[in-house]
């Protein structure tokens, strides 16, 4: 173990960094795209249900296949890896944003509108804060998945901890496989915990108590 670290420690750090970078960028892109899209979908519930089940079908395509599919289009390297992961991040965030907003108490929405909130105010002051716990759950779920899937990025030259895993598989070196999977798992746990902290920061105070009480 110490031996391994002494030998590969530097590389391990670099790869972990790469791994984190790929996942977080994909996740950030996912949030930037999926949350507004989810809000938009909540305005057209009929289309939304169909679209979400369609995206759900896309999601069942194996990740390796998607990655392979992307090589001819965007080539190999970090960028295509990020694009592929980004697509995977979309569904959970999209679905949770949509459901979170759809399930906000209609009485509250009507009161807000009746008080004279315009559309933007309704979204920012009312719907997003109230849907926040559900949206954050989607983001957390998708982040944990992404960190796992990011290992596959190595397959198209994206780098990251997947490099260790593939090398280990090719060279029949279990220690390399472990060197890839253990840090990836730790990363996933850390990411989840820190997002939980973010979630409790973003969740409005009034909701926290009622969630505890519920």
């Amino acid at each position: 173990m110490m031996e391994f670290l002494a030998e590969n420690g530097n590389e391990l750090l670099v790869k972990t960094g790469e791994h984190l970078y790929i996942s977080l960028v994909a996740m950030a892109l996912g949030v930037i795209v999926a949350v507004p899209l989810g809000v938009m979908l909540s305005r057209i519930p009929k289309v939304a249900d169909r679209l979400i089940s369609f995206v759900g079908i896309l999601q069942t395509i194996p990740s390796l296949a998607i990655l392979a599919f992307f090589i001819p289009i965007v080539g190999i390297g970090k960028f295509p890896a990020i694009i592929a992961l980004f697509i995977y991040s979309l569904l959970p965030i999209l679905r949770n944003t949509y459901i979170g907003i759809r399930d906000v108490d209609q009485g509250v929405i009507e009161a807000g509108k009746g008080m004279g909130m315009n559309n933007l105010q309704a979204i920012i002051k009312m719907e997003l804060p109230l849907a926040m716990p559900v949206i954050m759950a989607g983001i957390r779920l998708s982040t944990v998945y992404l960190i796992g899937w990011a290992a596959l990025a190595a397959f198209i030259g994206g780098g990251g901890l997947g490099d260790f895993i593939f090398d280990g598989l090719n060279l029949y070196k279990p220690s390399l496989i472990l060197a890839g999977t253990v840090p990836a798992t730790i990363l996933a746990v850390i990411a989840d915990r820190s997002l939980a902290a973010v979630e409790s920061k973003l969740t409005p105070d009034g909701l926290k108590d009622s969630y505890e009480a519920a």
């Binding site: 009485g107 509250v108 009161a111 807000g112 009312m126 109230l130 909701l207």
Partner: peptide, 14 residues
């Protein structure tokens, strides 16, 4: 002014 049946207070606001 508008008062709705379901009260509709904003649960996230004081």
């Amino acid at each position: 002014g508008y008062v709705i049946q379901q009260i509709g207070l904003m649960p996230h606001m004081t």
